[in-house]
Simulated assay, not measured.
Amino acid sequence: MAAGEAKSVLFVCLGNICRSPIAESVFRKLVTDGNLENKWMIDSGAVSDWNVGRSPDARALSCLRTHGIGTTHKARQITKDDFLTFDYILCMDESNLRDLKRKSSHIKNCKAKIELLGSYDPQNQLIIEDPYYGNDEDFETVFEQCLRCCKAFLEKPH
């Protein structure tokens, strides 16, 4: 990465209240801990518009707090501009990937590389399952997956 050349990443899930805000918060902490804040622009968003303006799920917030991570994120839906401005759009499952690829196919000069966040998992768990209908343990699983994937993503050359 050339000096002064910041990279950008957008984490995406269905509603932007569980998985993607956890991934965003985890990545932001890794970047902060590594003193790389000036190298990354980080955000998260949703494929759907269901939760626009809402805070993350209380269980997601609780899980992050357990790990000493806070967030002030409010859910938002991805926009056409996101495909033009972000270097990476990392999503959580096959359904997100299909929706994002479909949306990006209608955007001229799409800059974003659209991938599954799980493609960076050293344990090869490709899909990060939606914990919304699950329990606290499911949110912890999402956190652990996001942590592994975000570390591996951050360590790769960009």
Rank of each mutant, 00 (worst) to 15 (best):
M1K: 12
M1T: 14
A2I: 13
A2R: 14
G4E: 08
A6W: 09
K7T: 10
F11K: 04
V12H: 00
L14E: 03
G15K: 00
I17F: 08
C18K: 05
P21C: 03
I22A: 02
A23T: 06
A23S: 13
E24F: 11
E24L: 10
F27E: 01
R28P: 01
L30S: 00
V31F: 06
V31N: 04
V31W: 05
T32N: 09
T32V: 13
T32G: 01
D33C: 06
D33Y: 13
G34A: 13
E37A: 13
E37F: 05
N38W: 07
N38P: 02
K39M: 11
K39S: 14
K39R: 14
W40H: 04
W40Q: 05
M41V: 15
D43S: 08
S44V: 02
G45T: 07
A46L: 00
V47K: 01
V47D: 00
S48A: 06
V52D: 04
A58V: 12
R59C: 05
R59D: 05
L61A: 08
S62R: 15
S62I: 11
H67C: 12
I69D: 01
G70E: 15
G70Y: 07
T71A: 06
T72F: 11
K74A: 10
K74L: 15
A75N: 02
R76D: 05
Q77T: 13
T79M: 14
K80M: 14
K80D: 12
K80H: 14
D81G: 11
D82G: 08
F83K: 02
L84F: 03
T85W: 05
F86Q: 01
F86H: 04
F86P: 00
D87Q: 08
Y88C: 04
L90Y: 04
C91R: 08
C91Y: 05
D93T: 10
E94W: 13
N96E: 07
R98I: 08
D99M: 06
L100F: 10
L100D: 03
K101M: 04
K103E: 10
S104C: 05
H106T: 15
N109C: 12
N109M: 11
C110T: 08
A112M: 05
A112Y: 04
K113Y: 02
K113W: 02
I114C: 02
I114A: 00
E115T: 07
E115D: 10
L117D: 00
Y120F: 15
P122W: 07
Q123F: 13
Q123A: 13
Q125N: 15
Q125C: 12
Q125R: 14
L126H: 07
D130V: 09
D130Q: 09
Y132H: 05
N135K: 08
D136Y: 12
D136V: 10
E137R: 14
T141H: 10
F143Q: 04
F143R: 06
L147S: 11
C149F: 07
C149G: 02
C150V: 09
A152V: 11
F153I: 10
L154A: 09
L154H: 03
L154M: 11
E155Y: 07
P157N: 12
P157D: 08
P157F: 06
